[in-house]
């Protein structure tokens, strides 16, 4: 049996008159590892923000975990690392542990305090991303790639069922990108966390993912990764309006 975790039906969205997304329909199932591909300005981040409830669709329906997004309350099931997560004020006085701990805020709920074992949970989340030795460091003094790992730990500490990552490897060097994706695959396989990943690293990611969606204002392709591999480059060019190179 399949459990759609995300279901979009004829979703459209515009920013002050400019159409960003047009008639999007697709679904993501439990355990999927979906790569969302598309050129700059194709609406990838916008689509994620709609799923997260940061933006409201102009038309169409969004369901999360089988519930309409308006009535969906379990936001702590969804972990999110935004494209701009490195854009925080780098002079912010916070330790890595404090930032990771803050990922529990919604799960614990208003008026409640952190549980007693919170420090252990922080270390566990940091271990999952290989950053356990940085707990007491200032967040602003880490490299971009290290910060990105911390933000993933912040998402993981609440034990999400769905992890949404918007270009998480920007600022990570080529060698570390590989180990970064290995870490995501491990989370996907061991913890059955459903993943949605926006990326331009098609070549590196393609061996790990299960599904691909190609977006350019509308969904041009959505399906198994194997089927995606058989799409001709001419077709991709037509969708994106410029040359696309597919690397196997």
């Amino acid at each position: 049996m399949t459990n759609p975790i995300i279901q979009l039906q004829n979703v459209s969205f515009q920013y002050d008159g400019t159409q960003a997304l047009n008639n999007i329909s697709f679904q993501v199932e439990q355990g999927d590892f979906l790569a969302l591909l598309g050129p700059n300005g194709s609406g990838k981040s916008t689509l994620l923000k709609l799923i997260l409830g940061l933006l409201k669709p102009a038309s169409g329906e969004i369901e999360l975990f089988g519930e309409s997004i308006q009535s969906f309350k379990q936001r702590e099931w969804i972990g999110y690392v935004s494209q701009k997560s490195n854009a925080f004020n780098s002079g912010f006085p916070a330790t890595v542990a404090e930032v990771v701990k803050s990922g529990l805020t919604k799960k614990i709920g208003l008026f409640n305090h952190y549980p007693k074992d919170v420090d252990k949970r922080v270390i566990k989340a940091l271990e999952a991303v290989g950053m356990e030795n940085f707990a007491t460091r200032n967040i602003g003094q880490l490299s971009g790639g290290q910060q990105q790992r911390v933000f993933i730990a912040r998402a993981l500490i609440a034990e999400p069922k769905l992890l949404i990552l918007d270009e998480p490897t920007v600022g990570i060097d080529h060698e570390n990108v590989q180990s970064f994706y290995d870490m995501l695959v491990k989370l996907n396989e061991e913890r059955q966390i459903t993943m949605i990943l926006v990326t331009h690293d098609v070549d590196i990611v393609s061996e790990h993912i299960s599904h691909v969606a190609c977006l350019n204002k509308t969904i041009h392709f959505h399906g198994y990764k194997n089927d995606f591999d058989h799409i001709s480059e001419q077709k991709l060019d037509a969708w994106y309006g410029h040359k696309v190179r597919k690397i196997h």
Binding site: R75, I78, Y80, S82, F88, F92, T105, L110
Partner: peptide, 21 residues
Amino acid sequence: LFFKELFVLSFDEEYAKASGL
């Protein structure tokens, strides 16, 4: 009552909203 929420809001407003705070 609101210390942890205020921290999230101060550090990363978009994240606070995305978490449904």
